[in-house]
Structure formats: C-alpha cells, structure tokens
Computed example of a mutant assay.
Amino acid sequence: MAFSTGGGGGGPMAEINVTPLVDVMLVLLIIFMITAPLMAHKVQVKLPEATLEEKVEGQGVPITLAITEDGSIYWNDDPVLRAILESRLAVEAQKQPQPQVNIRADRTTKYKVIAEVVKTAKDVGIAKIGFVTTPER
C-alpha cells in the first residue's frame, strides 16, 4: 500500500506501487521458462524413405527371413528348409562386407522358432540381425 505524505487534501500521488508489477513479471518469467523448451521441438523434418532392396553404403542387399505361424521359413520370399538355411547363412557370413539379416515373423509365431533362427544365424557368424515390425499408428 502506498501512503501519501504531506498534508494537503486528496491530490494525485506521484509514486507508483511496483509490488503488483513485480508479481506479474515473475509469473510471466516462469511461464516463458516452462514453455520455451517445448516450442523448440516443433521442427518438422521429412526423412527419406528406403526400401529393403536398396544397397546401404558398404553393405550388400539385406537378406529377409520371413517366418510364418506354422514355422515355415522363407529366404527373400523363397521357401527354404532349416538344414539349407544354415548352409546359406554360412555362405553369406563369409562375404565381405557381410549383409544384414532382417527377420520378419508373424505376430502369432512361437518365440521358440524365432529364437532358433536367430541362434542359427549367430552360430554361423552373422553379425547384424534385425527384426522388422509394423510401426504403431
């Protein structure tokens, strides 16, 4: 509160009460400190799209192993037996640069079957194994 000093009557005061002004400024400062970092992540970037057939720099065409619900294995959409799978993976493991192996498994495929395929690939020396999934929408 401001009190007038001086005697006379009800004339206008020449002093400004700065307490409410400081309170408002501090509230605005806090609001801007909280919202400023949130606005920094609004940049939209369109990333390039790639397909599995494209060659990655320094690597060959990736190998896609599809595993169905009944345990059937497909090498780049061609059916393959488990015994032949191991020998084909061993041949690919010897190549320089070594291609990446991408595993696409059906949602209802038993994990035991997938784990056996991953173990087979690791045992023959495949270094890069990835899993292909559907992004959430």
Rank of each mutant, 00 (worst) to 15 (best):
A90Q: 07
V61M: 15
V43T: 13
L26G: 14
G58D: 12
V61C: 08
L26H: 04
M25E: 15
N102S: 05
V80N: 07
K46S: 11
L85K: 07
M1C: 12
I16H: 04
I67F: 06
I63E: 01
G11Y: 13
P12E: 09
L65N: 01
P135K: 15
K119N: 03
N17I: 06
I126Y: 10
A14S: 01
L21D: 04
Q44S: 04
V56Q: 10
K128T: 02
V117T: 01
Q96F: 02
T134K: 14
P37N: 14
L21C: 01
T5N: 00
L65P: 03
N102M: 04
Q94M: 02
F3Y: 13
T68M: 06
A93P: 11
Y74I: 00
M1F: 12
A40K: 03
A93H: 09
K122C: 02
V91L: 01
V132C: 02
V132I: 04
S4R: 09
V91C: 05
D77Y: 14
G9W: 13
K112P: 06
K55N: 02
A83K: 14
G6R: 00
I73S: 09
V24I: 03
W75P: 03
E57I: 08
Q100Y: 13
N76D: 15
G6K: 04
V24E: 07
L21M: 08
V118W: 11
E54C: 07
G10S: 13
S4T: 02
G125P: 00
P12A: 15
D123T: 11
Q94H: 06
D78R: 14
K110A: 14
A14I: 09
A50N: 12
I84P: 08
I129F: 01
D123P: 07
E136V: 02
Q44C: 08
L89Y: 10
I30K: 12
M1I: 11
P99A: 15
E15T: 01
I30T: 13
I16A: 13
G60E: 07
I84T: 14
E15S: 00
A115L: 10
G10H: 10
A90M: 09
P20E: 08
D23E: 06
I129N: 03
V61Y: 02
D123E: 08
V124T: 10
M33K: 14
K112D: 02
V56K: 10
A66M: 00
V113R: 13
D70E: 02
